[in-house]
Amino acid sequence: MIYNCLFITALLSVGVCAMTDLKDQKIYNKVLILFFICAIIMRNFSLNHAFIFKGFFDSAIVLGIGFILFHFHVMGAGDVKLMSLIAFCVGILDFIYALFISSLFAFFYAAWLIIIQQRKGRFPFACFMFLGLLIFGILTI
């Protein structure tokens, strides 16, 4: 029950961030903080301190790896923070599955941009994270 609520929280946060990422190419911290607070509250309902600590640990791992990618200009800081929130909500293993699905869609989109439109550049990754998380949720029902 709590995992389902956390998954829905992650899906909603990624959906909102995907819209702002498409529109403004920004992921706003106030949206991430709001959903992070909601996720903390829901994790506290479990009354299992190991479960609460695991969420912070998973989030810290993704945040650390993500900021290395940000430092090398592979990914934006908003995407890194969003992925950290997803890992906090769903756990590191489910995050990796969702990230794999997201990366497949992003790869095909990038290939289409390069081959068909003859253009290179940045594109919003939050919409692919939303798609990957949604498909992962449907596949695991």
Results as ranks from 00 to 15, higher is better:
I41P: 13
F51T: 09
R43D: 02
L32R: 03
I52N: 04
C89G: 03
I52K: 03
A98T: 11
D24P: 09
D58Q: 04
N48F: 06
K54N: 03
F51N: 07
L82C: 11
D24L: 12
F95P: 07
V31C: 04
K23L: 14
L34C: 14
N48W: 01
H71Y: 15
S46F: 07
F57L: 10
L82W: 05
N48R: 04
L69C: 12
G55K: 00
A77V: 05
L85A: 03
A87T: 02
V62Y: 01
L63W: 01
G91N: 10
L22E: 08
L63T: 01
F72T: 12
G91D: 10
V74S: 11
G66T: 02
F45V: 08
Y28H: 11
C38F: 07
I68K: 05
G55F: 00
R43E: 05
F100H: 09
G78L: 09
A18L: 04
H49W: 14
L93S: 11
F88G: 01
V31F: 07
L104F: 15
S102R: 11
V31R: 01
V90I: 15
V74T: 12
N48L: 05
L47N: 10
I41L: 15
L104G: 14
A87S: 12
L69W: 11
F105K: 09
G66W: 00
I65L: 15
F70T: 05
I40E: 00
I92N: 04
F70L: 02
L104K: 07
F45D: 01
F72I: 15
I65M: 13
K54T: 02
L99S: 07
K81Y: 01
K30A: 12
F67Y: 15
G78T: 10
S102N: 10
G66R: 05
I68S: 05
L34G: 13
I41V: 15
A77I: 07
I101P: 08
F56P: 01
L85T: 04
D58G: 05
K81G: 03
D58K: 04
L47H: 11
C89M: 02
F105D: 12
I40Q: 00
N29P: 15
M75Q: 05
I40Y: 01
F95G: 03
D21R: 08
G78A: 09
G91Y: 09
D79K: 04
M19W: 15
G66I: 01
S59F: 00
L82K: 10
F45N: 02
K81P: 02
I86R: 00
F100M: 13
M75C: 04
F105Q: 12
I92E: 02
H49C: 06
D79G: 06
F57A: 11
L34W: 02
L99V: 08
L99M: 12
K30R: 14
A18S: 15
L93P: 03
K30V: 13
G91T: 07
I65F: 13
N48C: 10
D58M: 02
I86N: 00
I33M: 09
I40H: 00
F72L: 14
A50P: 04
I27L: 11
S59D: 01
F88E: 02
V74C: 14
M42H: 09
L82G: 12
L85S: 03
G64V: 06
S103R: 11
A77E: 04
L47P: 02
I33D: 07
N29D: 15
